[in-house]
Design a protein around this nucleic acid. Sequence first.
DNA 1: TTGAAAGCGGTACCAT
DNA 2: ATGGTACCGCTTTCAA
Lengths: 364, 364
Amino acid sequence: MDPTLPRNNSVTVADVARMAGVSKATAARVLGGYGTVSDRVRDAVTLAARALNYRPNELARSMTTGRSGTIGVVVGDIENPFFSLAVRGITDIARQAGFTVILTNSGENPETEKAAVRTLLAKRVDGLIVSPAKESDVDHLKDVIRTGRPMVLLDRGSRTLGVDTVVADDGHAAENITRRLIAGGHRRIAYLTACDTPDHCFRAPSDISTGSVRRRIEGFLHVCREAGLSEMDQWVRLGALTQDDTKNIVTSMLTAPQAPTAIIASDSVIGLDVFKICRNLGIEIPRDVSLVSFHDADWTSVTSPAVTVVRQPVYQLGETSAKLLVERLNGENGPPRRIVLQTELLERASVSDVETNDLSMASE
Amino acid sequence: MDPTLPRNNSVTVADVARMAGVSKATAARVLGGYGTVSDRVRDAVTLAARALNYRPNELARSMTTGRSGTIGVVVGDIENPFFSLAVRGITDIARQAGFTVILTNSGENPETEKAAVRTLLAKRVDGLIVSPAKESDVDHLKDVIRTGRPMVLLDRGSRTLGVDTVVADDGHAAENITRRLIAGGHRRIAYLTACDTPDHCFRAPSDISTGSVRRRIEGFLHVCREAGLSEMDQWVRLGALTQDDTKNIVTSMLTAPQAPTAIIASDSVIGLDVFKICRNLGIEIPRDVSLVSFHDADWTSVTSPAVTVVRQPVYQLGETSAKLLVERLNGENGPPRRIVLQTELLERASVSDVETNDLSMASE
DNA sequence: TTGAAAGCGGTACCAT
DNA sequence: ATGGTACCGCTTTCAA
């Protein structure tokens, strides 16, 4: 930032007041739409304001009222259709309720997220909607609570924080998928996510700090255990952050002697990458490997084969979180609420039953 | 909005000053990072600030400095991958330069856009990036200029406005596509866009108020004329706003006696819809109809057939507009610049040459 | 109904 | 280097 900006020469209440021949207070009353004013004075002021092309300074207003009329939103990645759709839901509701949205991108990076929250707080947003990158790293969110500003957690919860939360039933969704795959004879099922640990290895769900993904992995492993499959932890693959990462992981899995017969992609971006990689590798879906992806991205129905997906009510996720926040902003004072939106398994053509001549699974 | 919000009880410079045993001015100096302070005092103030958990009030700061450190962005539809990618480019650059982004959605509606701009101006954003819904309707943008705040137009220009503009070479792109199609024997080529006129009929490019689309249509018609094709205006179809609209338009075109042999979709959302509709209608791409879409959306390479697209440097479009704006914010003072980013025709498999037994075209 | 004046939480100028 | 103080543009008592 550079110090040179033509000093603010905008017309103020005082200017309007002077022109209308009334006091600043009176002008402010009609301009701000509060208090009581006579019709004659109102007209005079309105006229003067129009003549001067008066524009209220929302900043100054916020200073005295303590409300800025803005909602701060922190998402992981706007480019991801999941978030852009959710953001659409948020902004629609926000606008309806008279709020403006300040959008920031954390890039799924806790440090960036921390900075974003600080900025938002400094700008005195009235409330926040956050999709925390890591549940383990939420001290900055406690700061938010300390300021007394309402906050809603989107897609990723936090047990300890005690704030309104809107999530999808990721656990159930993962369980459904896994049951479906196991029923189809699959035994080597990979779960692929962008989440990561320092050593890129999965040991326990508690390592996974992104709430929604942790719940899915828990569901996945739970059903596996239920079905008597052991050591499925090895099939949880982390760090599919970029297209290259995904390519490396998927290629090494698929070319290994014990290749998975099914892959679950944790979001539609990864799902698409897997799809492309398989095609480039000459691996046919679902003949050679089955694919299920989270998020019913619009393209998933037009590929060949069409992709079996978990349909998440993403727009509603955004809508609901904004609604909860607006309620708080309007004085709602009850205990923290946790809203779980239903998902649905959309079976299309990317999953097939495993061939019975798969000898390595003869025991089944 | 409701009047009840716990009056702002945050700790201020004065509080910190009191605790550190210095004057408000001195405390402000270290907290604001300006002026000169002795190390001892700096430490004392810093300590007090930490102890009190002081958070600067950016609103108050903005009031006096006249700069808010925010950039206002108005796009047509964040849900559209085109815009979400562009916004990503904007926010990346903005953050780097120390600015926060306020994002608003116009829904391609001039009234909403007008309101958004007014709000942004009232919030005293330092500058704006706008993707005007209609070039014909830009009075509210003149207001922006009048305030002296820099503005950059994204993807859609305006001849009359005289502000920095970043667009893709839509005209050339359309010309390339059209030439390619005509060379392939196509004579009935439909151009499908969400833009609309009151009576949903296309008469002249000047009817089209979305700059990027108008330039494309001009390019399309220009090459058609050049090739001796007349009356191609009839093939410009407007109003593909929702999936239903698109379905109606495409279905009626494709089932008419004189069906188009090629369709150009004005964005990837429409392109995807066309793809789906054809499939549902049992119309095979490219055997029965060729398809070219604007915007190299990530899914376009995985469909069968893969879709031939115009690759637009969307992220760079966002980046560049943000860069131009930041330059202005830093005092750059030259004449308005118009940056045109190159596009590229990515030929994949959704276009085929027209069969020579197409009798209606025997003259060719 | 209207006006005067005291803030809101900073910044910045002018002394000291 | 530090302190005193007048703003920024608006809201909001409190009196008149």
